[in-house]
Amino acid sequence: MGRRPVTPPAPPVSPSTPPRDPSTPQPSPSTPLRRRLPLVLLVVAGGAVGTALRVLVTLAVPPTGSFDTAIFAINVVGAFVLGLLLERLLRGGPDEGRRRVLRLGLGTGVLGGFTTYSSLATETATLGAAGDVLTASVYGLASVLLGVLAAAAGIAVGARWARGSR
């Protein structure tokens, strides 16, 4: 009764400005994720770790055969792990808090930086331009098909893991 505040709380913005200006850089629930600096830095840090891992694997795996075996293996393994991670997170609950940090840091960052498409495309184009269309086709098609199978297997394992942890 007598405990009402005398003055109402000040409005967050002056009446002359519209209540929600999409160009305002203030982080609000509607701010796109890519405009939130901590999330961008999380992806950058994860991408640096993933790229370093990719470089170390390419240095450790000796070049065998007529195409880039290291990138081939990196891409297939990365597709499996990303499928597993994303499915596990998706079934764990909404994309927020710790789940969002794991998705962006490990998924978009580490695994996105670990695997690469430009190297696959350039290697395939180089093989094709050199006249080795057979090796180019095998490298390109085997990468894509095994990548899809690996991602599907990862998703299946992630779904089982999520069911088992309930």
């Binding site: 597709a79 990303l82 994303l86 498409y117 894509v144 990548g147 990862g154």
Partner: peptide, 23 residues
């Protein structure tokens, strides 16, 4: 620029997972 910047920019794993989800 190649192995680092463009290798990190492009991604194979997301493309593979995208395909499985569409299928």
């Amino acid at each position: 620029l190649g192995t680092g910047l463009l290798g990190g920019y492009t991604t194979f794993s997301t493309a593979s997972v995208d395909t499985v989800r569409l299928l």
